[in-house]
Design a protein around this nucleic acid. Structure first.
Lengths: 344, 344
DNA sequence: CTGAAAGCGCTAACAC
DNA sequence: GTGTTAGCGCTTTCAG
């Protein structure tokens, strides 16, 4: 980089201001008590004149504080992830941290690679929307002085700070609502569960509550793999059983909702005439489809923001903890046309 | 962090393997020619035994290579930005770079703050989807040895690498299509332009082509501010002029399309019966709204990927350039029901 | 109030 | 083949 102007260092500022590097360093760290008014001003001028910006990398090497936080999301292309990122990013800006972000693409191997890469780059903490396959490695980070907060997907086991939503409460609310308004069968359509804790938890809650109502918890839960037309098959299968009953579906997240709607369109299934629908995640377009799609609006931004706050709090305190913080934020049901029952 | 295990350093590995730090360093950098087969194995064992991972921060301090790239997007919550991020992220993974990401929120002050913050953290390059207000600062980075690539939004002036789409070509294509199929007036609805180069360019192209067809280039271009019901007013105003003519609208990006559709719904405007619609950006839900929304699918992922490739290429070459690389990728028109003209 | 000196963890001449 | 030495840019004792 021969064409690059030499970067200005603390040494050059020291020379310019006619003091030692130490004093400049003190200045940079706001320890003004240790210098005369006059030197302070001289330093200020020198920094200004040279357009000096301290090298955070060098500072971090000595102080062991990189000032960066890592964040790994499972699929950055979903609005869910990007809003989560925004929440974390905003808090980081306020606290002076930079964000190192990676997209695991739901691939545990990539996830591990990113975690290790970020570790070598001395992140001070990690916010993760985890695939669920690297919980052991993540637990290990604790031993290296790295704090971790799980966002939305909790660890399957392990004592780590977590911010999720109150699935129990909102699923109960929606089931009550749907059955209460006359639907006779409510099914749940989930993406492949794998080790995804959120999907696992929603399944468990849905099946337990369905059971309590005397429903067929097994038959009404559909786990749908990412193959072509698998949603088509599932929805057709569901509607063919007990065709005289009025039915509704809850989809487990925004991506499942989109796939479900596409399948309905291909199969000419009318909503809510033939099947009611309530989805998790309320993204901008839900009101535009048909009579509007009812949805569970997750406080996605807040999940990210709270996770970042907790993480930074831990970093600042710097001490190990025995009791993890576990926060459950409330989700909200937004009612639209897709759950207005059409009586048969 | 009293509870943290002491991090293992190159010194400890050297002691364990009974060689000097230099030799370990050579090993880490793959310079196996400079050591015996036997020491190489000894080092391998020592690293394994101690679970050693080199500190990239320290390496970077000496070598002036942080191994991180910065990326700033204008609004991370739009699918456009997140897909762009994915493109960049994927290339970075392949090339061994970590991504430092920030969301400027279309705020030039935040954008500047992030740029400076990333600079102090020694990013080696920057991919930016810029607000357009910090072009001078960005140009300045070049003097500090930092390469920059603009993604999607080009600099208003300045000689910097850029990846955009071929707006000229696709806008011509869509206008031909719409007028060709019988629409008599085609308007363009854009978000507030400010210094956004893409919006500026689309406006210029649209107006020029409209002019060439003898249309009223001024009246047919709508710049719509982000106030409540401003889309409602614009669309109503457009439809009231020359009501006997069949009309269509092109929206300038995905966000504008969403706002436009919401306004139509509020005003009970039927698409395409009362107005045809073709939007920029083809996100998952377009096919689900009404008879399907026709859209210009931008190669968003490719924009990000190409931008990252170009940037990393520059970093590797390490030399200044006089001629910036300017790439224009092709967008594609996806035809759906919203542009099937209903003859009046 | 201020500075000299010794590192942080790693790399890179330059010797041997 | 391998080690010694001198830093990278900054912080931090420890002396004055």
């Amino acid at each position: 980089m021969s064409w690059a102007k030499k970067k200005v260092t603390i040494k050059m500022v020291a020379d310019q201001a006619n003091v030692s590097k130490t004093t400049i360093s003190r200045y940079l760290n706001g320890k003004y008590e240790f210098m005369s008014e006059e030197t302070r001003e001289r330093i200020e001028k020198a920094i200004e004149a040279l357009n000096y910006h301290p090298n955070q990398i060098a500072r971090g090497l000595k102080s062991k504080k990189s000032g960066t936080i890592g964040m790994i999301v499972a699929d950055i292309t979903t609005p869910f992830s990007s809003i989560l990122v925004k929440g974390v990013n905003d808090i980081c800006l306020g606290e002076g941290y930079q964000l190192m972000i990676a997209n695991s693409d739901e691939d545990p191997r990539k996830e591990e690679e990113y975690i290790r890469s970020m570790l070598t780059r001395q992140i001070e903490g990690l916010v993760i929307n985890s695939t669920g396959y690297n919980d052991d490695l993540i637990q290990q980070l604790r031993n290296e002085g790295i704090f971790v907060t799980y966002a939305e997907r909790r660890p399957l086991n392990g004592q780590i700070d977590t911010v999720t939503i109150d699935n129990e409460h909102i699923i109960k609310y929606v089931l009550d609502k749907l059955y209460g308004s006359g639907f006779e069968e409510v099914a749940f359509f989930s993406q492949t569960i794998n080790k995804n804790a959120t999907r696992q938890i929603r399944k468990e809650i849905f099946q337990r509550m369905t059971c309590e109502r005397g429903g067929d918890a097994e038959a009404l839960f559909f786990q749908i793999d990412q193959e072509a037309f698998s949603y088509d098959k599932a929805i057709m299968g569901y509607l063919q059983e007990n065709p005289q009953r009025s039915k509704a579906v809850i989809t487990g997240n925004g991506v499942a909702m989109l796939d479900f709607l596409r399948a309905c369109r291909r199969q000419n299934i009318e909503i809510p005439d033939q099947v009611g629908l309530c989805g998790f995640d309320d993204w901008g377009w839900t009101e535009l489809v048909g009579a509007g799609i009812s949805a569970i609006a997750q406080p996605t931004y807040e999940i990210g923001a709270r996770a970042a706050e907790i993480l930074i709090g831990r970093i600042h305190s710097g001490i190990d903890y025995k009791d993890p913080i576990e926060i459950e934020l409330k989700a909200q049901f937004v009612e639209r046309g897709s759950t207005q029952i059409i009586l048969k």
